[in-house]
């Protein structure tokens, strides 16, 4: 940094006359920056707003040319169609939402139950080739799903896990485990090991010290990690579409994607289903916003 300061000093006198002009320019630039930011925000959010709007539009307004931005008929029919089948009773979509809840929930629980103790062990003990093990674990998460799914498909066909929720739960747990371990290791590292040492001096075993003293302190971290795992499983599509086919097993992403299979597409229904599908994710993401950087980099980058 010393070098840059020197350079800055030598650059100083030359621009002696500029400050007043720059200040005025600064305000103009500030306005420009806010305007640019506003434009970018509109561009980024427009598709989301358009999706929400489409989900509450009457069908003829959905397909209106030119597109109607404000003067359209509001209806909740699309949302009703998401949950209720045309002949009454439960729609296939609502069943798929339920499947998604089960699969995402169970796989998250499994990944957490396996991942948290492993993260604790990696954080506390001198494990052989620890760094290599951790990097190996993370690298399994980067394998292209399309490639992994080929042998998984054959494997599942052998053992009868094709088109079952258990099959999906297992693959999603394996998919979330690297993330859970990395993310949780960061949280465990933040809890001083001295707590456990002190507890052990009081006569607790290592395991008891972990359960009674460290684990309660990890609960917020576990919750944040589980929420991310939940979001990843909830949004996952590739394994779901290749490993399941029947309506009573299929999760929501392939079910929603299936809506555009026919010759005519009911875009109002697609929009409503997408809104219902995305809403919990946005709520959950908002809850863990403090940990977003760590979460989206699979626990690798922490601030």
């Amino acid at each position: 940094m010393a070098v840059s300061v020197d350079e800055a000093v030598s650059a100083g006198p030359v621009r002696d006359h500029t400050p007043p002009a720059r200040r005025r320019g600064g305000r103009g630039r500030s306005v420009l920056e806010v305007a640019l930011l506003a434009v970018l925000a509109v561009v980024m959010l427009f598709p989301v707003l358009w999706m929400i709007q489409t989900s509450i539009k009457e069908n003829r307004d959905v397909y209106a040319i030119p597109a109607k931005f404000f003067d359209f008929q509001v209806t909740m029919d699309h949302f009703k169609d998401v949950f209720v089948a045309s002949g009454g009773g439960r729609s296939a979509l609502s069943v798929s939402f339920l499947n998604s809840v089960v699969v995402a929930g169970a796989s998250t629980v499994l990944a957490t139950v396996l991942g948290v103790p492993a993260a604790w062990a990696y954080s506390r003990f001198a494990v052989k080739a620890k760094k290599d093990q951790l990097f190996f674990i993370l690298s399994t998460r980067f394998m292209p799903p399309v490639v992994v799914v080929i042998p998984i498909f054959l494997m599942y066909r052998q053992v009868g896990l094709i088109d079952t929720k258990l099959g999906l739960i297992l693959i999603y747990a394996a998919y979330n485990l690297p993330f859970t371990i990395w993310m949780m290791k960061g949280f465990v590292d933040e809890v001083p090991a001295e707590y456990e040492d002190a507890a052990m001096l009081d006569g607790y075993t290592r395991l008891q010290a972990f359960r009674r003293f460290t684990l309660p302190l990890l609960v917020p971290g576990i919750a944040a990690t589980a929420v991310f795992a939940l979001i990843f499983s909830w949004n996952e599509f590739v394994f779901a579409i290749f490993l399941t086919s029947s309506d009573d097993v299929r999760t929501a992403p392939p079910a929603i994607a299936g809506l555009i299979g026919g010759t005519t597409v009911d875009w109002g229904l697609v929009a409503a289903a997408s809104v219902v599908f995305a809403l919990p994710v946005l709520v959950f993401a908002y809850l863990v916003r403090k940990h977003l950087v760590a979460g989206v980099t699979l626990g690798a980058v922490r601030r």
């Binding site: 980024m44 598709p47 999706m51 949004n235 929009a271 995305a278």
Partner: peptide, 29 residues
Amino acid sequence: LLTTLFLVPMMLSPVVVGLFWRFMLDAQF
């Protein structure tokens, strides 16, 4: 607030994103 708003697209499933852009990019409507 700004950061939160900008982050919305990233949290959506690729399925939702793909479907919705397909609708928005439709040549006719």
